[in-house]
Structure formats: C-alpha cells, structure tokens
Simulated assay, not measured.
Amino acid sequence: MLKSLNTAATGMAAQQTNMDVIANNIANVSTNGFKRSRAEFEDLMYQTQKEPGTASGENAYSPNGVQTGLGVRTAAIQKDFAGGSAQVTKNPLDLQIEGSGFFQVLTPDGQVGYTRDGAFKKDPNGRIVDKNGNVLQPEITVPPDVAGLEIAATGEVRVIQGLNDAPTTIGQIDIVNFVNPAGLKAMGKNVFTQTPSSGQAIASRPGLNGTGYLSQGQLEASNVNIVDEMVNMITSQRAYETNSKVIQASDQMLQSINNLR
C-alpha cells in the first residue's frame, strides 16, 4: 500500500485539530479574559532507505541520503497570554489586570483556581465571588449598606459607610504569576489550575514582581483577533482539502495498479 495514504490521513487529522482550536477561539471572541490558542505540529518518524553521509565510493559520501517522512501529529496547543483590550463598565466590582498575573478563586472542590476574568460580584453573605460563585482569595467580605467601594491599583479594598465618613480598608486583593503561564491547565469557566509545567504560583501585590496593576470599573476582553482567525481558518481548510486530494490521487494510483493485466 502507498505510504502517502496514511501520510495524508495524518495531515487531515492535524488540520481537523487545527480547525477545532480555531473554532474555539472564534466562539470565545466575546469571553472576558479569554486567551487564544494555536495548534503546533511536528513531523513523524522517517523511513530511511539511505543514511545521509553514507559512503558511496572511495572518499565519496552521499550528501543527502534517502528519507521519506510518514506524516504529522499535533505536538502542543499553545496559549497566547497577550493582553486583551479594556472594556469600561463602571461597575465597582469589575477589575482588569493591566499586565501579567491572575486572580485567585476557590473552586467548589477546595482547589485554588486562577483566572483573568475580573467580573466579580457579591454573594448573599457579602463575599466577593466570580460569576460561578467561586470565592475570591484572599476572602473579602463587603459590609452591607456601604455608600461606596474603592479598589486601589495596588489591590487595597476600601469602603465608605457614610457620605461624610473616611474610607475604611476591609481587605487586600493579591494576584499571582507563574514562570510558565502556558503550562496552566484550562478547566473551563475561565479558570486555570496549576500544573508541574506551570511552576508554583508566586503571589504578590499588584504592580510588584512583574505583575500588573488593577483597574477598577473595567474588564479585559478576549485577545482573539477575528480577522486573523478567519485567515487561519481558510488556510486550514485549504490544507485539509489538499491532503484529501493526495488520498484521491493515491487511490487512483492503486486503481491503476489493480487494472494492470
């Protein structure tokens, strides 16, 4: 059987994965704090008929050799943690990290999750939570009937009880950073979890140790560029079609062999 059949099939599978990644990027173009992904590929092993540099005569060596590739596979799906644009909401509990870093939230299973989505709210007890009810860490409880809520760029949370009262500090929002953010595991719901590849979480106040400052009243939009994704989609589609043409051509070659008399 022609090796090109399997080789082209691996190409079609790779482009299908590529299209899945692109589709997920486009689907999340309006998701707060979403980071686009890109599929990365690598070639498979080679069938070597003649090693490069093999002696071909006295004091003569083959300059290239004869090696036939056997296809491609998905090596990784890389997250792009470039910042998204700012969306002004004027909601006092909407926060954007202007730079590197993640908010910490406590998931229902007791695990600490990390998110760039700063659309926070208050639960019935006054605790600051995300849209899924995960409690912001360190935990901060907003007293009832406050006249105003202020979150400084360095994460200090202050409230004003009365119009003539001085602001009172009720907590501090710390953010964390990682040596390799691309190694975080995406869990859905805009939450990542730590892995051995990401390294340990390094907590600090906003603006310290390379982290960004906080901006109150605005959110970070998705960093997906819809035009780039459309171009990538067309490129992936054409590559998929070309690989299918290779399978058709290989099938026709096999048919010609079968028709020999």
Rank of each mutant, 00 (worst) to 15 (best):
T89M: 05
Q87T: 14
Y61F: 13
V142M: 00
K79T: 11
L149W: 03
K122G: 02
G84P: 08
S100R: 15
L149S: 02
G71C: 03
A119G: 10
G155M: 06
V72G: 05
Q78Y: 14
R127A: 07
Q87N: 15
K122N: 11
F102V: 08
T141S: 11
G126L: 02
Q67I: 08
P124R: 07
G155A: 09
A82M: 11
R73V: 06
A76L: 12
R127K: 14
Q104D: 12
P138N: 00
A75Q: 14
V88W: 09
I140G: 01
A153G: 10
P63T: 05
S85F: 12
S100G: 15
N59F: 13
I140A: 00
G155W: 02
G101S: 09
F103N: 09
I151N: 01
F81G: 03
T68S: 12
L149Q: 01
L136V: 08
P143Q: 02
G118S: 04
Y61W: 11
D94T: 07
L136E: 00
I151T: 07
L136F: 01
F102W: 10
K79H: 12
D80W: 01
F102Q: 04
G69F: 00
Q111Y: 08
T68P: 12
G83P: 01
V142L: 01
D109P: 11
T74E: 11
E98R: 15
G126S: 07
D130Y: 02
S85V: 14
A86V: 15
P108D: 10
P63H: 01
D80N: 15
R73H: 13
Q96Y: 06
D117Q: 13
F103Q: 03
V112C: 07
E150V: 13
P92W: 01
A147N: 14
T141P: 04
V142P: 00
Q96V: 03
P144C: 02
G84V: 06
D130S: 05
G83E: 13
